[in-house]
Design a protein around this nucleic acid. Structure first.
Lengths: 250, 250
DNA sequence: GCCGTTGCGTGATAACCTCTCACTGAACCT
DNA sequence: AGGTTCAGTGAGAGGTTATCACGCAACGGC
C-alpha cells in the first residue's frame, strides 16, 4: 500500500494516477502548513484529513504512517535544498558569463574551475542561498538540521541527497584559493578518514574548509531560527555575513 | 495547584513537603530518562505515572501540565549548564592558584583579570566544559538549544539564567588578549545594540568574540549530537578542538 | 485525644491522537 | 458488460492529555 505507481516523472499518467499524485501533493502541502505553525511533533493526520474534508483513515491510502509522511517531508526538504544549491552555482556561473560576455553553451560541468579572482566565490553564493532558503521556511530547515528522534535513522535515499549537497559544497570549496594554515591534529585525523567525501579529489584543507562552512553557518542559522537571538537586538544577517567573510578570509 | 510551598531551599521542611519534593524529583528523574531514550516529543506523563506505580492524573498534583514539566526540565537544564560554567572557571582559577602556590582565600570575584599568558584561557575551559556537559546528556543539550515549538516563549526565569551563562562567557572573553581585527558592518551594528549584555562593560570586539564562540561551538556540537557526522569517520572531538584553537587565535 | 483542614491518589470521563479492519461504491480496464 | 482495483467510510482498539468528584490518610490546632 501507499507505494507510488511506477510512473516516470510526470509522463503520460492515467487519470487515477494523476488524482493520486494530486491528493498526495495536497496532503504534503497541508502538512507543511501545520509544520510551519505548530512544529513537527504536532503534525496531525486527523487534522489534515478534516481540512481536506475526508475521514481520518483515508490518508492511510497515501502514506503508510505519520512517520512515513514526515520522512517524505524530510526527503523533499533535502531535495529542495540540493536543488537550491545546484541552481545557486548554476545561476552564478551564468550571471558571471553574461556579465563578461563570455557565452558558454554547455550547461553542465566544471563551473568552479575558472580562476576569476574578482568574482564572488561560489561558497559565498551557496552561503547566502542557504540563508535565504532557511529563512523562507524555518521549520523546513529545522526539520532536517534540528533535533532528531534519538532512534531515527535516515533512509539511504536521504543520505544520498545529503551527500549530493556536500559534494556541491566541496566543489565550491575546492575552487577557493587555498590559504595554507598550520596543520592541526584534526587535519591529520581528516587525512585518514576522508572516505565519506564520495571519491571527491579534495585535499584535507578543502574538506576542513567545507566542514567549517557547514558547522559555522549552521551555528548562526540554527540559533537565529530557534529564536535564541531574540532579546539581543543585533541583526543576525550581518552576523551571518561576518561569518561568511571570516570563512572566506581564513 | 502544583505550586511548591514556599520553603527556603532545603531548610526545615515538614515531612509533607519533604515527600512532595522527593516525588517531584522522582518524576523529573524519570522524565529525564524518557527524554534521553525517546526525545522530548515522546515524553508521556502516563508512562511516568505507570512507572512510579501511580495512576495518570496523580501527576497533576505536582505539575500543572505536560508543558509545565518540560518547562521545568528546560529550567533545570539551563541551571545545570550555568552551574557547570561557574564551576569550570572556579576550578580553573583554583587549580591555577594551586599550581603556582598562589593561595587566594576569596572564592568569588575577578578570576579572569590576571594577565597570566601561559595558562589556558577561561574560554577554552568553558568550551571543553560545554562539550563534556553536552555529551553527558545529548538530549539535555538539545532540549535547550534544539528545535523549539514555534509559539514557545521561554519564561523570564529561564532567560535570566541564559543571560547569566552569557555573562560568564563575556567575562571569559574579556579576559582574552584582544586581537584587533578589521571592524565589519556587524561590529557597527553590534556597537549600537549591546543593551542585551546586561550592563557588561565589554567592547564590541568582546561581544563579537563571545557570539562567535557561542555560534561556532554550537554548530559543531549540534551537528555532532544530531548524528549528522555519522558516516563521516572523523573524530568530532578533534574538530571541536580545532574550532576552539581557531577561536583563540583569531 | 479529638476534629477540621489540607492534600494525595483514584476511577470515570471527555476529547484528542494513530492505526486496523471490514465494507461500500465508483472508476477503470478488458 | 463484468471483473478488478482502489478510494473512502464508520467502527473500534489502544494510546495520550487533562478535568472532575470522590475517598482517605496525614497533619495541625484545640
Amino acid at each position: 500500500m501507499a507505494a507510488m505507481p511506477e510512473t516516470g516523472a510526470a509522463g503520460a499518467a492515467s487519470p487515477r494516477e494523476r488524482y493520486r499524485t494530486q491528493v498526495c501533493a495536497e496532503i504534503k502541502e497541508r502538512a507543511w502548513g501545520q509544520l510551519g505553525t505548530a512544529g513537527a511533533s504536532a503534525l496531525s493526520l486527523n487534522a489534515i484529513a478534516k481540512q481536506m474534508g475526508m475521514s481520518g483513515p483515508a490518508l492511510y491510502r497515501y502514506f503508510d504512517s505519520r512517520d512515513a509522511l514526515i520522512t517524505e517531508l524530510i526527503r523533499d526538504a533535502y531535495r529542495s535544498l540540493a536543488d537550491t544549491f545546484h541552481a545557486a552555482v548554476a545561476d552564478d556561473a551564468h550571471a558571471s558569463a553574461d556579465g563578461e560576455a563570455e557565452a558558454e553553451a554547455g550547461a553542465g560541468g566544471e563551473a568552479g574551475a575558472d580562476a576569476d579572482a574578482g568574482r564572488r566565490p561560489d561558497v559565498a553564493v551557496l552561503a547566502y542561498a542557504l540563508r535565504r532558503w532557511a529563512l523562507a521556511d524555518p521549520q523546513r530547515y529545522l526539520l532536517i538540521y534540528g533535533t532528531p528522534v534519538p532512534g531515527y535513522h535516515a533512509p539511504d535515499e536521504v543520505t544520498a541527497i545529503a551527500a549530493e549537497i556536500m559534494t556541491v559544497l566541496l566543489d565550491a570549496c575546492a575552487a577557493l584559493p587555498l590559504a595554507d594554515r598550520p596543520a592541526t591534529p584534526f587535519d591529520a585525523d581528516l587525512a585518514e578518514h576522508h572516505d565519506w567525501a564520495g571519491g571527491h579529489a579534495a585535499g584535507t584543507p578543502v574538506l576542513r574548509r567545507a566542514l567549517a562552512f557547514w558547522t559555522r553557518l549552521h551555528g548562526v542559522l540554527s540559533l537565529e531560527l530557534s529564536g535564541h537571538f531574540t532579546g539581543m537586538a543585533f541583526d543576525p544577517g550581518l552576523m551571518f555575513a561576518a561569518e561568511v567573510d571570516d570563512l572566506l578570509a581564513g
